[in-house]
């Protein structure tokens, strides 16, 4: 028994339909929406701005702060409003995924706030969030080396699939599901996010990483188009 056909009919290396729009929150210095199918993330950037209280300031560079959260009605079973351990962790890995590309040395003692909200969740929300955040940071004119693109890879039973949806995430037959969210920098090809949940052999994990790199190129293309579409 094996996962020979994806539950939603996609090819194994096929992402869901992506959507990216820049400039969706007029109040923000930069903002964007990014969607993988039914997973929709929005991100807004405020700053650089002076950081208070003073003891949090870094005199060498500005600080990047990320805050990821899901709206209560973004998931099938209502999520109680407010941060959870999960959202704290995702906020942190998001910040790590973005840290190397932003260059805040010009702005010591300041903060750049990145707020990410998940409007609708169907797995891969952190990846959609990172993609939206990268766009919002660029839109805010923050000095950046390059763009980061993120995608989740899954091992469903024994098959590597790209851009896992909820149904696949919950797959229980055979070897079940392994979730591997990753992010690649578009130019230097470095890995900025790498998490894994489940069970996978080394050789297959190598395939998964390769699949992630290829998929991130497709994500990047959508991000690129969205930023260039600004009028």
């Amino acid at each position: 028994m094996s996962y020979t056909k994806r539950l939603d009919g996609r090819k194994f290396d096929e992402l869901r339909e992506m959507k990216a729009i820049v400039g969706i929150v007029p109040n923000a210095d930069g903002s964007a929406l990014f969607a993988f199918g039914d997973t929709i993330a929005i991100a807004a950037v405020y700053g650089p701005k002076q950081l208070h209280p003073q003891h949090l300031q870094d005199p060498r560079r500005g600080i990047l702060r990320c805050n990821y959260d899901m709206l209560s009605f973004s998931v099938p079973e209502r999520k109680k409003p407010g941060p959870t351990r999960r959202s704290h962790e995702i906020s942190k890995v998001t910040q790590w995924a973005l840290s190397e590309i932003v260059n805040l040395e010009e702005f010591p003692n300041t903060v750049v706030d990145v707020h990410i909200s998940i409007l609708q969740a169907n797995a891969s929300t952190r990846c959609a969030g990172i993609n939206a955040a990268a766009l919002a940071l660029a839109h805010a004119g923050i000095p950046m080396k390059e763009i980061v693109s993120s995608v989740s890879i899954g091992k469903i039973d024994d098959r590597i699939v790209v851009d896992v949806n909820k149904e696949e995430e919950e797959y229980e037959e055979g070897a079940g599901s392994t979730d591997i969210p990753m992010a690649f920098l578009a130019r230097s090809k470095k890995i900025a996010l790498f998490q894994l949940d489940g069970g996978i052999e080394l050789e297959q994990l190598k395939d998964a990483i390769e699949a992630a790199e290829q998929a991130c190129k497709k994500v990047y293309k959508i991000q690129q188009e969205a930023l260039k579409d600004i009028r």
Partner: peptide, 24 residues
């Protein structure tokens, strides 16, 4: 119907002001 996981949902814009609401 702006969020598929909500039992009911809406987005309201008044000029540049925007809010979303969902029912679970």
């Amino acid at each position: 119907g702006i969020s598929k996981n909500a039992e009911g949902s809406a987005r309201v814009k008044i000029g540049d002001t925007e809010v979303v609401a969902g029912v679970k």
